[in-house]
Nucleic acid binder design. Structure first.
Lengths: 127, 127
DNA sequence: ATAAAAACAGTAATAATTCTTATTATTGTT
DNA sequence: AACAATAATAAGAATTATTACTGTTTTTAT
């Protein structure tokens, strides 16, 4: 990881991500922090999320309704996205295979990681 | 599938999608057709891609560099995305498991489908 | 042929994200 | 503690993919 100057806001952004399981968007992180950091700027959230991703401290889960969603849990794990309400749910531990292993050896490029995303309706949205 | 009036342009858009393995963006489809249909509008491409998706004739592969990518091959199959050049490559037939099966029974919501996407560098980008 | 409905082009609007610039915070050095 | 050097920031402008609107054209059923 490149070494960076310390920044209270960057730290706070990462803390928010680490203290939730909701796989938030940039906007949501911003809304969470704005009360405690009234001079926080949305651009700062976006910029730091990019840095975290570069440094491998967070991963992108995918875009839901046009917004990228982030996850501070960098261990490989699958996600479920509810196509009705947009909620993103961890499926950690529910898969008994490593899709990366399953494909390497068959593919000529180099595989860095693999995303497994289930789509459907969450329990709440099934009524 | 809802019944729709016939449209020469809609037909052409689907033909383009069906005759390529490149998993194109809306913009790319538009660029392909513009020479033969000089009065084609980008909005028409977007609108019809949405209709195709509603009708289950195409699927969304995910966003690459901010642009959604589409695929007329609706059979479940995995993809590889090169994070350097953005190329999307089919991994059809290379997975020996059905991730949907692997997860149902463990999850309380209803699973419609499952996306498996590998990330890395394609052969060309590895030099 | 004609009338109703759907599809269209062209353009304006929207919305997520990135970029720019002037200011402020951090860090190492006296 | 004062100091530069430089990274980080706020605010807002700019960019860009996508969607919505409006008046016109195409399709299709009568």
């Amino acid at each position: 990881m490149k070494d960076r100057k310390h920044s209270r806001k960057r730290e706070a952004i990462l803390d928010v991500l680490r203290s939730t399981k909701t796989h938030p968007s940039a906007e949501w992180v911003y809304a969470q922090l704005k009360p405690s950091y009234p001079d926080l700027s949305l651009g700062t959230v976006y910029r730091n999320l990019s840095l975290f991703r570069e440094d491998g401290q967070i991963i992108c889960v995918g875009t839901v309704n046009g917004q990228e969603r982030f996850d501070a849990n960098t261990k490989p794990h699958a996600h479920f996205i509810c196509d009705r309400c947009g909620e993103v749910i961890d499926m950690e531990g529910r898969l008994c295979f490593d899709p990366g292993d399953a494909a390497s050896g068959f593919f000529a490029g180099s595989i860095d990681y693999c995303e497994v995303t289930f789509h459907g309706k969450c329990l709440k949205c099934m009524e």
